[in-house]
């Protein structure tokens, strides 16, 4: 047992939050999740060995599940994945030093939950669409279709570039529409960066618990309107990952 350990911090919560016995922490074997309390605040933590890297899929999943599970019952301020401190004293110092900010942020998240709406273009429908509205691209498509890739490389690059640019414009427009249609039902919205060249609109929404059903209905309507062109997914309810940037401690 000479192995050195640290405390992995998941998030900051009001002091009355109690981790349930079945909460699974990061690490292998998973650490037991406990709360380190200080005044009105607490941090959800678990012990991790300092040797050996973190970040296996199971670690990320455990981190997210713990935070999302907590967010379902209490406000929580996610702390960036991978934050490890020396021990309970350090956690208490941290809570002490930023008490007011953390408390204010938690107030803001009381009764609110995050959702992510993520659209992905259906490639055939999207490309068919682009070719239909861009005669030059359609012409290039005729030239490359069924031809060996090596023989038509310049045309292919040009065609792909046109499609790519068209997708970018559509994505921007789609992002605007997404915020326009759903933003009114949310307390706050945050744009999300695309992670795939077929990404359509994508944004995070901070939603009041008592408007949740209304919000989800609106997302369904949004998805329905676009069903042939965009595959829309709704992630959540989640901890407010996309809404904590204002509370970063980097000064």
């Amino acid at each position: 047992m000479a192995e050195e350990t640290g405390l992995f911090i998941y998030g900051i919560v009001p002091a009355d939050v109690e981790p349930t016995a079945d909460a699974i922490g990061v690490g292998e074997p998973p650490g037991e999740v406990t709360a380190v309390r200080h005044g009105e605040l607490a941090a959800l933590v678990s012990e991790v060995p300092l040797e050996g890297p973190l970040g296996r899929p199971a670690d990320l999943t455990a981190y997210q599940e713990l935070l999302d599970g907590t967010a379902a019952v209490a406000p929580v301020l996610p702390v960036r994945f991978g934050t490890v401190v020396t021990g309970a004293d350090a956690v208490a110092d941290l809570l002490e030093a930023h008490q007011d900010r953390f408390a204010a942020a938690l107030d803001e998240f009381e009764g609110r939950i995050q959702y992510i709406v993520h659209g992905r273009y259906e490639e055939p429908a999207l490309i068919g669409d682009v070719l239909a509205e861009n005669p030059a691209a359609a012409e290039l498509a005729d030239q490359v279709r069924g031809q060996p890739a090596e023989a038509t490389r310049p045309q292919r690059i040009r065609l792909g570039e046109m499609i790519s640019q068209a997708v970018e414009l559509r994505r921007e427009a789609e992002n605007r529409q997404l915020i326009e249609e759903l933003g009114g039902l949310a307390v706050a919205t945050a744009p999300r960066v695309p992670s795939n060249e077929l990404d359509a609109g994508s944004a995070a929404f901070l939603v009041d618990r008592d408007r949740e059903d209304e919000f989800v209905d609106a997302v369904e309507a949004y998805a329905e309107q676009r069903r042939e062109l965009i595959r829309t997914r709704l992630l959540g309810p989640l901890a407010p990952y996309d809404f904590v940037s204002a509370h970063q401690l980097v000064e």
Binding site: V84, Q248, V250
Partner: peptide, 21 residues
């Protein structure tokens, strides 16, 4: 969803942050 999100506790903060791999 989670990567690069969340409160950043910087080393500047007078808290013993451990660099973990």
């Amino acid at each position: 969803t989670v990567l690069d999100k969340g409160v950043v506790i910087d080393a500047q903060v007078s808290v013993a942050v451990v660099g973990i791999q």
